[in-house]
Write a protein that binds this DNA or RNA. Structure first.
Lengths: 209, 209
DNA sequence: AGATGTGAATGGGTTCACAGCA
DNA sequence: TGCTGTGAACCCATTCACATCT
């Protein structure tokens, strides 16, 4: 592990990857930094700086080759250990995630989903089988899943997190508003929807005086 | 507008507000910076720095008074112009947001929701009436709504954004993966769920070698 | 000429270290 | 003594300016 990699750079690289996938699907072969930067809402210099991480190089004549740059970002971001994802909670958030994932991420796959409601258990929802929450530890261990999405109500979030971590999870995307207590080696990202709207409201008004 | 306010500070202030609401509900009257900082996963110095924005002061003996600090943050964050929110798209993401909002945000209120599906139109879902998308411009103008959440499929996100901005929206929370083309005065926050999981996967693995 | 890649400068955010207070 | 508030130092991210390439 050489120099520390910042969250912002990774977020941007993932965004570039998305845009490049779209460009590839449109049959575009080459792109200049100023074009890609515009699509990603960053400056061309910022983009070129970010790409310095990848040891990938473009050409002054034709810019970047879409397909190879895409592969370079994928190689950099992709860690095969963390390709399998578990989803806990099949309410609206959980279903939304399953729908969005359908076919979108080439790098990650939601292997299993869990819920405590027996109505949902054993059904296949958006291409993913649902198991009872009590089966989570054994399935996560057996499949060696390292990443989990928590989409359960606030009241059970910590309890679910404890169980997941015990089973080997080291990365959590938490859609519940609760702050989780986790060991130092576990990475948690919070996505509270209410806080997100409050942030937008503040900055929108702030920007316009 | 004196000095520029950073996104990170505001995100943290909103988080403190959340935690303080919980503390108030638990009947806790006072709290020290190191306690609140721990709950928010920041350093005590960082917390005290953040509070410098508010012109609110604690006491070395008893720390901060929960109720007044909470009010100070609310006052700072709350802009009455931006209290009304519109939601576009009542798929799973839209419903999830409505459920989370139920009673949670004291500062903001989702006034109206919109969908193109006539099955949903005129129903009241999670306490919020659903209108046909074609009514959005007139209702947004009439109610003077400034903030909107976009929870529609990728293919219609830009079109919806154009319509909203035309009707007076200046802040957008975008759950679709699409990058939006908007005028300079409009603030947009992106919340793509697939990219979020990819970020977690990267850092979880990166942290653990 | 018009791109890319990058050392050096700038600017913003966080932490240190300590003064001041009850 | 143990807290708060904050100038100064530090560190990280972005931007500038320019050498380099075709």
């Amino acid at each position: 592990m050489n120099s520390k990699i910042s969250e912002k750079v990774i977020e941007r690289l993932i965004l570039y990857k998305n845009i490049l996938e779209d460009l590839e699907n449109q049959g575009i072969l080459n792109i200049y930094s100023h074009q890609l930067a515009k699509m990603a809402d960053v400056t061309p210099v910022q983009l070129r700086r970010d790409l310095m991480l990848l040891s990938y190089y473009g050409k002054p004549t034709s810019g970047y080759e879409v397909s190879t740059l895409l592969k370079a970002i994928e190689n950099f971001i992709y860690k095969s250990d963390c390709a399998k994802v578990a989803l806990v909670g099949l309410g609206h958030v959980g279903r939304a995630i399953l729908n969005y994932f359908q076919g979108r991420s080439k790098l990650l796959k939601i292997i299993a989903s869990f819920d405590k409601d027996y109505e949902k258990v054993n059904r296949v929802i958006a291409g993913c089988r649902c198991y009872h929450i009590s089966e989570a530890p054994s399935i996560i261990k057996r499949e060696n899943i390292k990443i989990a999405i928590i989409a359960v109500p606030q009241s059970s979030a910590q309890e679910v997190a404890d169980m997941l971590i015990e089973a080997g999870i080291i990365g959590i995307l938490n859609y519940s508003p609760t702050r989780l207590n986790v060991p130092a080696n576990v990475y948690v990202e919070y996505r509270d929807m209410v806080r997100a709207v409050e942030k937008v409201a503040f900055f929108a008004c702030y920007k316009n005086q």
